[in-house]
C-alpha cells in the first residue's frame, strides 16, 4: 500500500520568552520522529500532556513547519510554501474544542466553509455538504445553530466540515477530550465508520486508551519522541512500560494483566471485554466439569 504520510527525522524547536530573563530559551517540542502511515489505515498517537503529540499533528496539516527533517503528505513536502493549501486540503484537521472550530452560525454553512475556501462551485458545495452531513449522521440538524448542539454533535459537525473538503486523511487532535462519555462514543463511532466504509486514513491523537483499541497501529510519544510503536495488542502487552510513561491501559486490559500476573492462563494485551470473556469462558466450563 502507498504511504500517505511520511516523516523522516522530524524535529521542531520553538523559542520561549520568559518574564524574568531577557534571554530567549530554545525548547524542543519534538525530535527525530520517523513515521509512515499507509493509505486507509487507522493510526493512533498516544502520549500524556506535553509529550509533543499535538505538535506532531500540526505538522501533518502544515500549521507548523519542521525546523529539522521533512514531512511529506501524499508525496508533498509540507515545508513548500506554494503547496500549502494542497497539503491542508489533503490532510484535514479536527481540534479539541468544538466551540472554537465552528465558524458558521448555521450547521450547513459551517460544513460549507471549507469547500467555499477551495473555490468549489455553489452546486457542488451543496452536494458535498449533504454528503458530509449524512456521513456523520447530522443531516437532520443542518438548519440548527451550532450553539444549540451537544458537544458530541458539534464535534461531528466539525468532522463533517473536514469530510466536505474530500481529504485523503483526517487528523483528530484529542477530539473527545472535552466531551462526556456519550459524546465520546458518538465521535469514535463516526471516525471508525469513516475509516472502514469510506477508506479515509485516520490519525487519532488521544490519551484515552479505550479509543486506541480500534487502531491498526499505535505510536506512543514521550518527551517529544516516539518511544513505542506497534499494534494495540503489542502496546498493551507492555502495561508496566505504559505506566512508566504515565499512561494507563484500558480497564479490561489491566484486569487481564493482573490476572495473568497472579497465574491465570491468558494471552498478552487483551483489548476488549468480549476477548477476556472468551479467554476465560473455557476455563469456567472446565471448572463446571470438575464440579
Amino acid at each position: 500500500m502507498p504511504s500517505i504520510i511520511k516523516a523522516r527525522g522530524l524535529g521542531f524547536d520553538y523559542v520561549k520568552y520568559t518574564d524574568e530573563s531577557e534571554n530567549a530559551e530554545r525548547v524542543t517540542a519534538i525530535r527525530e520522529i520517523d513515521l509512515t502511515v499507509e493509505k486507509g489505515t487507522f493510526i493512533a498517537i498516544l502520549g500524556h500532556n506535553g509529550s509533543g503529540k499535538s505538535t506532531l499533528a500540526k505538522h501533518i496539516n502544515a500549521l507548523l513547519v519542521p525546523t529539522s527533517g521533512t514531512m511529506w503528505v501524499d508525496g508533498i513536502d509540507t515545508a513548500k510554501e506554494q503547496d500549502l493549501w494542497k497539503v491542508r486540503q489533503k490532510a484535514g484537521m479536527v481540534f479539541q474544542n468544538p466551540d472554537n472550530q465552528i465558524i458558521g452560525t448555521v450547521v450547513d454553512e459551517d460544513v460549507g466553509f471549507g469547500p467555499e475556501n477551495l473555490g468549489i462551485p455553489t452546486k457542488d458545495i451543496w452536494s458535498r455538504v449533504d454528503d458530509a452531513l449524512s456521513k456523520v449522521g447530522m443531516l437532520g440538524f443542518r438548519d440548527r445553530s451550532p450553539n444549540h448542539l451537544s458537544g458530541g454533535q458539534k464535534q461531528r459537525v466539525a468532522i463533517a466540515g473536514v469530510v466536505a473538503m474530500h481529504p485523503e486523511c483526517i487528523v483528530l487532535d484529542e477530539p473527545t477530550a472535552m466531551l462526556d462519555p456519550n459524546g465520546r462514543r458518538e465521535v469514535i463511532e463516526v471516525i471508525r465508520e469513516l475509516n472502514q466504509r469510506e477508506g479515509v486514513t485516520v490519525i487519532l491523537i488521544t490519551h484515552y486508551m479505550e479509543e486506541v483499541t480500534y487502531a491498526d497501529h499505535v505510536y506512543v510519544m514521550d518527551a517529544g519522541q516516539v518511544v513505542m510503536e506497534g499494534t494495540p495488542r503489542e502496546i498493551f502487552a507492555q502495561a508496566e512500560r505504559l505506566k512508566e510513561l504515565r499512561l494507563s491501559v484500558p480497564q479490561v486490559t489491566e484486569l487481564a494483566y493482573e490476572l495473568k500476573k497472579a497465574g491465570a492462563d491468558l494471552p498478552d494485551g487483551v483489548l476488549t471485554i468480549d476477548e477476556l470473556v472468551d479467554a476465560l469462558a473455557p476455563r469456567s466450563e472446565q471448572y463446571a466439569d470438575r464440579a
Binding site: L63, F95, N100, D108, F113, E116, N117
Partner: peptide, 26 residues
Amino acid sequence: RRANDLAMAMEARCYHGGTGRTQMKP
C-alpha cells in the same frame, strides 16, 4: 485563546481571505 484556536481552525480549513472563494449561499 478562542481567537487563536479559531484562526488556526480556519487556516486548517484552507481559509485564505476572500480571493478565489466561492459561496455556498450566494
